[in-house]
Amino acid sequence: MRVTTPDAAPALRERLPAWLAAGHHGGMEWMVERADQRADPSILWPGVRSIVMLGMNYGPEVDPLSLLALKDRGAIAAYAQRRDYHDVVKGKLKELGGYLSAKGDVRVKVFVDTAPVMEKPLAAASGLGWQGKHTVLVSREHGNWLLLGAIYTSADLVPDLPEADRCGSCRRCLDICPTAAFPAPYQLDARRCISYLTIEHEGPIAPEFREAIGNRVFGCDDCLAVCPWNKFAVAASEARLGARADLAAPPLAELARLDDAAFRARFAGTPVKRTGRDRFLRNVLIAIGNSGDPALAREAERCLSDPSPLVRGMAVWASSRLTDAAAMRGLFNSHAIGETDAEVGAEWRAALDHAGNTTA
């Protein structure tokens, strides 16, 4: 926990509008809608005098990069293998806010990700860590594994000193990105980020990114996991937010069979539930298509008749990766006749073109 002031990150007033103007926020229009409040905490709440930043350790039990070799299983980002951080961090912040309020005529407002608050720059200003070249907060004590929350308060608290940038010449986080989502150090183009594509993006994922997604079915930890500062996170591992063992690397075959009710039951209380079943199945089918496992072709085939066009479209792509040209033409005759969705139709045309070129 550290303290900063509302005016401690003045660069946001220029950096945030420039980032939005470049379109790097992708489809996250909520970033635009209240951009003035994000760039200046005093606009969000004129009564704020101090900001208390809280970080909770969620260091993974195993190296997230090791999950990428398990082609028949889904890799879920480390933070999402745990209880929904919105609930956990907000609970801690409310406890602290209650303590502050009890000290006198002090007002507080608690924020965890759902309000127009730029947590990472404020956390860096408070001394919790620094924003690395991948834009994620890096801590000397917790590595890259901190969940953040903020308390805006009317109390005049003594601010902590900001943490110095300790990345030096290292660029491992930039070089490991599968989709080249960093146009420059300290800049992120969300439109190319696997975390954005598999969580925030609502429609089909562009073909140019599908192979790079691999078996990542929710989020991506690559740029976090490769950071050398993570070696210092071991000391704090006992205090971390624990993970659910069944979410470490679930079989893709199981995930592909989830209907809406089963999806909600399996991921209840976790961040995964927020994406909804159809977007999650879209990701699962991309992973199936990348698996190279013919045994998973039947799971993709079963999804060709799914009620969701988003799922059907990705099932077409996955099938085209795991079956031969003759089989794809048979699947087309069985499932594509009468298809009314334009995007699914485009997937079928691309799949048949691919099958024809492969045959040739």
Rank of each mutant, 00 (worst) to 15 (best):
D36I: 14
D36K: 13
D36F: 06
D36L: 10
D36N: 10
Q37I: 12
Q37Y: 08
Q37C: 14
R38Y: 08
R38N: 02
A39E: 05
A39W: 05
A39L: 05
D40K: 07
D40S: 10
P41L: 12
P41M: 11
S42N: 08
S42C: 14
S42F: 03
S42A: 15
I43L: 13
I43A: 00
I43C: 00
I43V: 15
L44Q: 14
L44T: 14
W45F: 08
W45P: 04
W45T: 07
P46F: 06
P46C: 02
G47L: 03
G47F: 09
R49Y: 06
S50K: 09
S50G: 08
I51T: 03
I51W: 01
I51A: 04
I51R: 01
V52Q: 04
V52S: 06
M53G: 07
G55W: 10
G55V: 08
M56F: 02
M56D: 01
N57Q: 06
N57W: 03
Y58S: 12
G59C: 02
P60E: 05
V62Q: 13
D63G: 04
D63K: 10
D63T: 04
D63E: 12
D63Y: 06
P64T: 04
P64I: 10
P64S: 08
L65N: 07
S66W: 12
S66N: 04
L67H: 15
L67W: 11
A69Y: 02
L70D: 11
L70T: 00
K71P: 02
R73C: 07
A75I: 05
I76F: 09
I76N: 07
I76R: 10
I76H: 09
A77Q: 09
A77L: 05
A78Y: 01
Y79K: 02
Y79H: 08
Y79T: 02
A80G: 06
A80Y: 12
Q81L: 11
R82E: 07
R83A: 12
D84H: 11
D84N: 12
H86P: 09
H86F: 04
H86N: 09
V88S: 12
V89M: 15
K90N: 09
K90F: 13
K90S: 14
K90G: 07
G91T: 06
L93N: 07
L93M: 10
L93C: 07
L93G: 11
E95F: 03
E95W: 05
L96D: 00
L96T: 00
G97F: 07
G98T: 10
G98F: 09
G98K: 12
G98W: 10
Y99K: 11
Y99R: 13
Y99Q: 11
L100S: 11
S101V: 13
S101W: 00
A102V: 00
G104K: 01
D105M: 03
D105G: 00
D105N: 03
V106N: 01
R107T: 14
R107W: 03
V108T: 15
V108F: 05
V108G: 02
V110K: 03
F111Q: 08
F111W: 12
F111N: 10
V112R: 11
V112P: 01
D113W: 03
D113S: 03
T114A: 09
A115G: 14
A115H: 13
A115L: 11
P116K: 04
V117Q: 03
V117E: 00
M118C: 10
E119Q: 13
K120A: 09
K120G: 00
K120H: 03
L122K: 01
L122H: 03
L122G: 04
A123E: 04
A124M: 07
A125Q: 06
